[in-house]
Design a protein around this nucleic acid. Structure first.
Lengths: 129, 129
DNA sequence: GAGGTAATACTACTTAGGTAATAGTGTAAA
DNA sequence: TTTACACTATTACCTAAGTAGTATTACCTC
């Protein structure tokens, strides 16, 4: 098994699959397929193949139970979000979080509630310095 | 020429190249190559090939001048950042800017200055609602 | 025990990004 | 006028993601 999967560049489908696994802690192929069916129209075998590839890559592992493959994540959601975010901020905003937020604020739809939430988080973070 | 390049998923190299073009408003292949030489060790032809591919994709166009290809961006930096950010926030945080910021704040190194900057931006944004 | 059903196994193909070697060409210098 | 230089053109590979068809297997039901 490969030790360190390069977790900062997961494809869209892989990420969707991971999200299902994170939410359910584990899932069989049919379960993943069903969970994604609402968003996309993918063949059953597509999911199965992808999971197999993801296992080779070290993102998930499986055990057999009841003639079914039960897949479990091998990487934490926290870690993936972290790596992906860091990579993204680096790539696009040279690592400046402020630039990123600035950009998002000026282009993204944001509700007052979200703004308040952000303010609170920033304030809290400031105290920790 | 393709009308709408899918601007929300540029590869790393393509983005680096675009950044050079945006900064210089336009650039020849040697110029791009030189600009990127500080960050990576890429063959001259790699840059040339990539620019050709990017032209096919509709990201850039070129004119000939003095026997050289001068490439110009066909998409604005603003637009690319916007699309890429939106896609990213959607993919990873189900579109919630607050979740994204929360995550970044808790995992990313942030200086006091950055926090202050963000606070100001949020406050300014709130007034616009 | 025959057959249907639900899984997995295998194989294959397409596309895009990335990387680069080699071949060709035209201009300027010697 | 020959050659070297600086570009572009052509071609080729590799990898990863995504997508899925076909083959196989095993179990369950009648």
């Amino acid at each position: 098994m490969p030790p360190k999967p390069t977790v900062h560049k997961l494809g869209d489908l892989q990420l969707q699959i991971m999200k299902v696994l994170w939410t359910n802690t584990e899932a069989s192929v049919p379960e993943v397929h069903k969970a994604l069916a609402e968003e996309t129209e993918l063949a059953y075998t597509t999911i199965a193949t992808m999971l197999r590839k993801m296992e080779v890559k070290g993102l998930v592992k499986h055990r057999v139970e009841d003639r079914k493959f039960i897949y479990k994540p091998l990487v934490k959601e926290q870690e993936v979000s972290e790596k992906m975010s860091a990579h993204f901020v680096d790539r696009l905003f040279e690592g400046s979080l402020a630039d990123m937020v600035s950009h998002l604020l000026s282009t993204h739809e944001v509700s007052r509630e979200e703004l308040v939430k952000i303010e609170k988080m920033v304030a809290a973070r400031k105290k920790k310095l």
